[in-house]
Design a binder for these strands. Structure first.
Lengths: 142, 142
DNA sequence: GTGCTTGCAAACGTTTTGCAGACTC
DNA sequence: GAGTCTGCAAAACGTTTGCAAGCAC
């Protein structure tokens, strides 16, 4: 599906929930659907501002929150620093090097053993997407 | 070994590294050795201030940083919010419920399968102590 | 006395919020 | 016109830093 159609489909969902369709929401959605995953609110705002200079960072935060509530996007914490946002359809876990910041995306099956152990021992259901697993990459191996 | 002796032993280490033995460092160490693990800088400062009202929060941060450099303590991030500090001798991983905040401490063997997979697939050495694994506890199971 | 350490205040980076005006429906 | 959304400024949060005075050695 072309980007524009996907954007409009989400805006329709927003409207169905009683929300309004605004220029800043359209700009944010276009940005999310067009660009790479894992961008911070600030990065998204900067990109939006290239074409729509009046969209304020706080508006971006509020709209990200709204889109997250609707299940369209999710955010992850890849270590210290700002959260990153990505489409909910492309979730996966992360390994992030504490030394150089290198990031590896890992499919859920990588976490299935840990999920089993956590469940068996603690009745705990892990969410491997929200927070990254920190450590050292091969290059920075301490 | 009694708390006082352990405190003095660390202070000796501090002195050996060219650091000075001060009242605020002694108070922080006593606090760390006496109380529960996983306290935030603010909590530690509050406890210290009950007996030593003049120790400033920024001093606590600076001394925590120093003690971490010496390997006496370590900090963990258990989700959003402030970091928690604990003695380096009692490291373990954590599972933290995103809904209710319940925290489970897990020995390193719980993470050995994940460590193997991360190493095999990405040459990545995980550090399961620094950041908690988020998810849902049995009670909050979504 | 050298120089590490402290208290304080102020800054930092990220995110949230209060408000009055602007917009969508 | 009702009610949502926006820009802006300001606050909130956890943490760090600059500085001059104070203390350990």
């Amino acid at each position: 599906m072309p980007v524009d159609d996907r954007v409009e489909a989400v805006l329709e969902l927003v409207r169905a929930q009683g929300g309004r369709v605004t220029a800043s929401r359209r700009a944010l959605l276009r940005c999310l659907f067009e660009g790479p995953a894992h961008r911070t609110a600030e990065e998204l705002a900067r990109e939006i501002n290239e074409k729509s200079p009046d969209v304020h960072l706080s508006t971006v935060y509020r709209n990200l929150e709204e889109l997250e509530r609707l299940g369209v996007i999710a955010h992850s914490h890849l270590g210290h620093g700002p959260a990153t946002y990505h489409l909910a359809s492309v979730t996966h876990g992360h390994f992030v090097c504490e030394a150089c910041g290198a990031t590896y995306e890992a499919p859920d099956e990588v976490f299935s053993d840990l999920a089993d152990v956590a469940s068996d021992r603690y009745g705990f259901g892990i969410d491997p997407h929200h927070f990254a697993v920190l450590g050292r990459c091969a290059k920075c191996h301490s």
